[in-house]
Structures are given as structure tokens and as C-alpha cells.
Design a protein around this nucleic acid. Sequence first.
DNA 1: TTGTAAGCGTTATCAG
DNA 2: CTGATAACGCTTACAA
Lengths: 346, 346
Amino acid sequence: MTPMTVTLSDVAREAGVSLATASRAINGSANRTVRPDLREKVLDAARRLRYSPDANAQAMARGRTTALGLIVHDIADPYFSTIASGVTSAAERAGLVVTLASTERDGDRELAFVELMQRQRARAIILAGGRTADEEANARLSSALEEYRSRGGGVAAVGQPLLGVDTVTIENQRATGELASRLHALGYRRFGVLAGPEGHLTAEARFEGLRDGLAGLGVEIDDAHVVRGPFTRDGGFEGMRTLLGRSADGTCPVDAVFAVNDVMAVGAMAAARAAGLSVPDDVAIAGFDDILTLRDIVPSLTTIRLPLADIGVMATELALAPPRDEPRVVPVDGQVIVRDSTPRRS
Amino acid sequence: MTPMTVTLSDVAREAGVSLATASRAINGSANRTVRPDLREKVLDAARRLRYSPDANAQAMARGRTTALGLIVHDIADPYFSTIASGVTSAAERAGLVVTLASTERDGDRELAFVELMQRQRARAIILAGGRTADEEANARLSSALEEYRSRGGGVAAVGQPLLGVDTVTIENQRATGELASRLHALGYRRFGVLAGPEGHLTAEARFEGLRDGLAGLGVEIDDAHVVRGPFTRDGGFEGMRTLLGRSADGTCPVDAVFAVNDVMAVGAMAAARAAGLSVPDDVAIAGFDDILTLRDIVPSLTTIRLPLADIGVMATELALAPPRDEPRVVPVDGQVIVRDSTPRRS
DNA sequence: TTGTAAGCGTTATCAG
DNA sequence: CTGATAACGCTTACAA
């Protein structure tokens, strides 16, 4: 009867060759220095015994694993799952296996996961999801990553180039700057912003791009029309409610609202409707990301398209590329897409 | 200077104890039979040397890994990414690391990934995503899973209980049966169905539940109003277009369309609008899944809610539970949610 | 070409 | 409670 677990030694014995030969025959690395007939014998034996090489043992012996760590804030969020799909496809191409960690937006867990990947001896780590302005957390994370890299691991981040590692940066500010002029050209002058959490760097960059862009056109955003809140659908909903509540007479205090991401924009639309307002007649709304699942909503959402899957691919390639002295920064631009949620203002 | 890679031996030497003691002190398993002062010395040394245990070596020595394999059709699809979020959280609770594979709906890759996980000696595999009626592919997969289980791995599937493994099944047919009566009660009589791909068991179950439910109420679905196509947004869009094209005079041949999932339903809405039809005035639409990201679309979508994250958790628990002789089947029911896309027909 | 044997970093067994 | 030392399953010099 077959042993509980078939090892390469079993295969070698069965094939009547040495362990080394069996290894060479099965692995068949670069220089296949093994006689064809022996090779066949080994492969046969392996098949007969249903041999399955132990990747852990291989990793151990070879001194390198085949794992790639992917750390996201929340895999259920379409933003991250789309990036993840890019990462998995690039990883597969590279013959790597993706280890997924979802931090639920908890900085401590992010750090813990980096350490976990380090213990797994993952070849590289990809950190998707923006940083916050929490200097201390960033420093801790940076030093964990530095440690990891000093041990030969590759790292790439998606977001802000704060960690001292290769980063795919998103040109948030430029994109929202362009959005500002597009909306301005469409006739909008009174803006509200659902600005996301304080200290969320992506959210802030997006907000600032819009604000500065408008400022350049002579339009100020009233502080009373900037609402902070979670980077989520509910954050958008509540934010919009708050914004509407700030007008004395119940009418909408602005004619366009920019939400710093699409899911917030959708929440905002829901809140506007719940308040009896029509989108876009009473208030226009724009988002950011161009989430695929939301591409068919009505009114179609003006937003900024990000090539999320490509970003995942790029980050993977960056993380796997031979290290450089200077951290690389690969900027990815967003494309403003004007749709029905921000029609021309007459 | 610190060695390129710090091993437990280094720590032991630095602490002036034996390898064994160092191991015991750091691992501190159940019976911590190590004197406190030595323990401290070891921990100190480890900290000083920035020691990071090698999970691979541990796995090798302990004879069991800490990996859990998750195989999905497409991680970018909100259906799967939500299940994945349940899996990651349950896995984390169990102290396991999730290895993610996205097959892009390719049966061969699915098989290849099972074998890959087997090589990784993953503790368990979770197969999310339905089967097709391809007997041969299912048989191949089944036998690979059987092999894996015979070697001590746990397996759980989400979908149909076809693989001979523990399965979280979704009561598709019951749910769409209920949907049928709800829609019937609302006054709908002429139904169209965007039925997904031929041989896609989930799609078929959903379709059949509706058809049989309606039949029980004396309503037949005209074959000409059943359109096959991909299980995707574009499948829904094209399917709706086809359905509309089948009416001679350009008017809508049905008063309600059921799409076998939400993203198809959204595609269908888009197609209806593109054809100049109003949803729900000219045609009502219902979906399946209750994807979170789509919960705010207008008109709000009548659908069937599935507790996707919970399903991920349940599948994980099933896969990790001690094996039984008989495959377990855990049925999960969907909840019909009637919203604005299927108003009462006057 | 093939075989022997020395690791790879831990854990675990078994004496002290 | 602690310390040698043998596994764990595989790769890879180094020899033959």
C-alpha cells in the first residue's frame, strides 16, 4: 500500500535510481543532465506513486520561496479586488503564488501582516491602499519593510511614495485638478466636497487637486461645504446628509458635489435622493476610480478612471524587479470621464 | 555584523543556550517547560538579532503548514471578492494564511491550482464558484480533490454538492421559486430570462426555480424569451438586446426580465435604456446576489440576498473541520428583496 | 551522467 | 528543565 505521504526517496527507490537523479529528472532545471531512459523511469515511478513535490521542502532547500504577499485594506472593496486581479495574473505569470491579507483598514494588522510575510519568506510584498498621515504608524511600517528588504525581499506600494519603497503613484491631484476645470467649464461654481477621513492621504490629494484647480479659476470652496467622513459608501451617504443639513432652508447649498471615490459618490446620490433632491438636476455629483460595477448606474457617474488591474500588474513587476538604490516611482494618471451626473449648467 | 539571515541557532548562541531551548522559549507551545530567566535571555537575543522564524522550516519540521487555498473564478467579481473577505477573516481567526488563485473561469487552471495547493501542502482548499455540467472536467477535479483529501487536506466548495466534498450550497431554486410568486403577486405575467451560459449549474438552477415557480402558478415562460449568454455584465447587456430584438415591432415582448445575477441585471438595465425603454415602467428587472456595491442603483434592484461573506466563513469552517465519512452539505438560503425595479403592475 | 552526502531552519524525541 | 541529535523532504556541490 502507498505510504501516507510519498516522498522523492520513494520515487527514487521505485525507479531504482538515487535521490539526486530523481530530483534532477523531476525538476529538470536548466541543465537536464539525466539520461532519457532514466528520466522516463523516474517520471513513471512518480506518476505511479502519485508523487507530489513538497513546495515547502523545495523552498527550504533552494533557499527561496515562491510566495508573493498582497496586503489590501479590504478585499471586498472593488477598488482593491480589481488591483488584486492584476496582481494574481502577474504573479501567475511569474510562477508565484499570492498570499492575501485583508487588514480591514487596521494599521496594526498591516504591520503584523508584513511581519507575517517576512516569516513566510515571501519573495515580495505588495502594499495596496493608501497611507494615512499617522507618522508613527508609517515609520513603524517603513522600518518593517526596510528590514524585509534588507533580507532580500522586494516591496512595492500603490499610493503615496512615503514608505521609501518602489511605488505606483496615482496622480490624484492632477486628475482632480483637471476635473475642476472640466466642471468649471460646464458651468459649476458652488462646490461641495465629501472629503474622506482627515489624514487619509489619497483623499486629501484628491480634495486638494480639486480645490487648487478651482482656486486657479477663481472659485473658492466654502469650508462649510467640505465634509469629512469615512472613505466608504456610508461615509458618502452621511456626508451628503450633513452637507444638505447645513443649508438653512433645506435647499441644496451647492450645485456640484465631489466625492473622493465612487462608492462615496453613490452613497451621496442615495442621500440626495432620500432628501428629495434630483441628481443631477438639483445637484451634480462626481466621483473617482471608475469602478467597473458602477459603470451602468443612472445617472452615469462623472469620475476619474484608474487602470486598477494594470496598477496591480505594475506593482507586481516593480516588487519583483531587481532592487535599485533609489526607490522607483511609477506615476499612473487618471482619466477624467464626464458623464450624465454632471451635465452642462445652463 | 549581522548575518545575512538570522537563524534560531544564532539566537541560541547569542543567548548562550541550546538550539532546543531557544526553540522552546520562542515557540512557547502548550507546555512552556523553560525557566523564566532563560526564556527572557532567549527572547532578548532574538530581539537583538531581529530574529524572524522561518515559517517554511517550521512547517517542514512540524509536518503541517499554515496555508489555506482559496480558488475563485474571478477575484475582481464582487461576488467572489465578498466571499473572499469572509474566507480571509475566518482564516485569520484560525491562524492561517490565505493563498489566492483566480482561475479566470478556466477549468484547467482550476485543476492546476488544486494541484498547486497540494504541492504547497495547504491545510485546506476552498473552491468558490459554481460547477458546469462538464462531466469530464468535474470528474478530473473530483479525483484531484479526492487525492488531496486522502493526504489529509480539507476541502469545501461553494455551490453545488457535486464534487463529493463538503459544500455550502445555495438554495438557488427555492429562492427564485419564491421570487416567481412574489413577481406573480405583483401582477407580472410575461417573463423574460437572461439565463446565463448553457451548462452553468448555478445559472440553470436559478432559471429553473423561476420557471417552475411560475409554472406552478399557471404561467409559462416563452422559449423565445429565454436568452443564453455569459454570466457577466456584458452578457446581461447583450442578452437584453437580443431579447428586445426578438420582438417584431420594437416594443418590449415581456413585462419582467429576470437576470440570473445582479451584474447581468445591471447590464440588462443599461440595454433597456439604450433601447429607449424605461425601467421599470416599460420593463421590470430582477437580479440575484444583492451585491453591496449595487445596493444604491436607481431604480433599486429587486434581487435575492445572499450572505456572501458568511458563506466564505462557513466554507472555511467546513474545510477546516475534522473530516467525516459523508460529505456535509450546508444549505444557505437567499432572501427575496423586492425593490423598485419591479413595482406592482396595475 | 550518476551517486553520496551535506545542508536548509525548525521541531521533537530522548536522554541527562 | 535542558541539551544533543535525529528527523522533515528536497536541492546541490562534490566525487566517482
